[in-house]
Amino acid sequence: MQQVINVFLIGISIGSIYALMSLALVLVWRSTRVVNFAQAGQAIVTTYVAWEVVNRSGSFLMAFIVAVAIGGLIGGLVESGMMRTLFKHASDGPVASVAPVIATLGLLGVIRALVGLIWTNEGKRFESPVSTAGFVIGDTTLPFSRLNLLIICTAAFVMIVFSIVFQRTNLGLALRAAAYNPEIARLSGVKVAMTRTIGWVFAGAAGAVAGILLSPNDSLTPYSLDVLFVFGFVAAVVGGLESLVGAVVGGLVLGVGLSFITFYLGTSLVFPTAFIVLVVVLLVRPSGLFGVKGARSA
């Protein structure tokens, strides 16, 4: 039983990171109807920046704050500098749906290349701010560590902040309205272009948190967040792509599910399982667990 609880808690810990990446993807999808493949690239930049800050200042908290701020800034710049122009020039026909996705893939390549140029492709050791040794209860050492606890608490804090912004503030109301029906939102005086940028800013910040939480005690390379993107994407699809709650639940469910598979069936089944889940959800319930059936106008 104790083993099950441990596996569950570790699943929640890793799942909360998937949830943050999933949240980032959903925020971008809701605001501009684009799957942002560059999200992993944006997060890798902020994670490297965080690594630099930790190395120079020794403060994980400062690294966290800088990473989140730069993550938001990059998100805003990508939307206002690249995507907005792209939407203007490719607004009709088949190119309108394909061009933004290809652009984000291109951006991912550019970011990786630049990160490789600046920090090299050699793995960097990102020290954990807290102990990675498991908690000890009696004479048993649990796999669940202070780092896992920090991850869960940080992710929960970020999600609570998002929840308050979206559910309790006029800004959140404008963001939700613009996501659901931009035309009616415009008639109500909502500056939809601005809400789109804010969606990308929030997504950039959430992705930055995901990156910085995944990397401690691990080797950091320009490709090390690719797996996070894949699981974040699966979580977003499971949650329904539209729903912020769905993104979080999708991430947690995936994290817990994959944690049990890792412990009881082996790591080799983790990837196939994630993709099977993706395909099954798309086949059986394309709108996801929390998605809205039928199309919304973008």
Binding site: R176, A177, L187, S188, V292
Partner: peptide, 29 residues
């Protein structure tokens, strides 16, 4: 009609008053 189905009635109406918010999106953020 054009109401936002997922929002409450009050939220739907509040949206119409969005222009009366004296603060910008940045302050709101």
């Amino acid at each position: 009609v054009g109401l936002f189905p997922e929002l409450t009635v009050l939220e739907n109406v509040m949206l119409g008053a969005d222009c009366l918010a004296k603060t910008g999106l940045v302050r709101a953020a």
